[in-house]
Design a protein around this nucleic acid. Structure first.
Lengths: 204, 204
DNA sequence: TTGACAAACTGAACACCGTTCAGTAAATTT
DNA sequence: AAATTTACTGAACGGTGTTCAGTTTGTCAA
């Protein structure tokens, strides 16, 4: 039995080793350079070995996607300390934007790249997306219950809030704010999110 | 001189032929299948020929990007007929979303893919983005001047409005709304944009 | 202890990719 | 008609994801 346990442990360790190498490559050199051959070279195995541990490259990126969501959730979870739901909403949106701008590769992995979702189609749900969405949705619901946001289907407002910050983040990451002066864009991005939070409150 | 003019005309015609083939491939089979070899096969030339007309693949995608923006602009320009700026804003956002959802590949080309912007970095500006952004910004400015939207830097509100609909569109296209029931998502997307437009008005 | 079998791994093959370029054919110029 | 220029070819180069026949190592049963 010891042999079986040791082999299973070694298998999990090598799997995690592969993922750590993939993440390191991705963070250092971006998506293009995170190839199966480069990952294999980094862990000093042959490219074929990787297919003993993962179905395909999309499978690897789904795991990286999940790892990235854990980082994001930890980052955002500190907002749970904030009692005022409107203040928490504002803080959530500002921290979300800061995370996206500071970690464009991780953000890409979670919310823009197709590959993780291609692999996900073979699984049941998207727990990672759920957790982070619920953080937002619970805040919106509480603000409505306290009369701080005019009542409406919470999914409508939550989707709008998430889409606003996702839109700001992804247009920034994909360099689609070129029509504005470069040095003005970043503060504008944060201010836009802030201003809409303010107006959400005033619309009682 | 006739020879020179004919040769120049033939050059432009082949260039457009290449672009039409690329666009057809892209619309039919997506980005992955729109390779230089596949484009070459479609126009019945060698892959090397394409490099006599375009610097590289990113250059081709920049042209496709521009072609896509012309389609979008035509689509949105009909809103100029609407006199009420708030009604125009609402219409702009709904039509933008409908366009994105009906044409996910064209949308990808304009607002998500990196490649066109990589080629663009060698050029001066992004006229395409400007034209469409100005349509929105002019509408927001007029609504402010008429007291329909509370006064603020128009770029703040314009960025927020654009980011909201871009966020809705791109999260939908990249399948990041999996935490919601599939049949509920589409109406929710349109409703979220509509609801925020309404609330922008109420925040006088 | 040994042979049989299973597991783990290798690395080249396959079909694909973007880009370059030496060689060729056709068109143009002198 | 010969020289030169232009347009094009298609293989080479270095890369990609994935598969698999062959090899090595580890485990198990006799």
């Amino acid at each position: 039995m010891g042999i079986t346990e040791r082999k299973e442990r070694e298998k999990q360790e090598l799997k995690q080793h592969i993922l750590d190498a993939a993440m390191a490559l991705f963070m250092e050199q971006g998506y293009e350079k995170t190839s199966i051959r480069n990952i294999a070279e980094r862990i000093e195995y042959s490219p074929g070995t990787i297919y003993l541990y993962f179905k395909d490259k999309a499978d690897i990126f789904l795991e990286l996607h999940t790892m990235a969501f854990e980082v994001l959730f930890k980052h955002l979870a500190v907002t749970k300390e904030i009692k005022d739901p409107m203040e928490r909403l504002r803080s959530l949106s500002q921290m979300y934007l800061k995370f996206a701008i500071d970690n464009p590769d991780l953000y890409d992995l979670m919310f823009i790249l197709r590959e993780p979702m291609e692999a996900l189609d073979h699984h049941c749900g998207w727990e990672e997306g759920f957790k982070n969405y619920d953080l937002l949705r619970d805040t919106v619901l509480e603000a409505m219950e306290k009369g701080m946001i005019k009542k409406e289907d919470p999914d409508v407002i939550s989707l709008a809030a998430w889409s606003l910050v996702h839109g700001l983040a992804s247009l920034w990451i994909r360099k689609r704010f070129k029509m504005l002066p470069e040095e003005a864009v970043k503060p504008l991005v944060f201010k836009a999110a802030d201003e809409i939070c303010s107006r959400l409150k005033e619309g009682i």
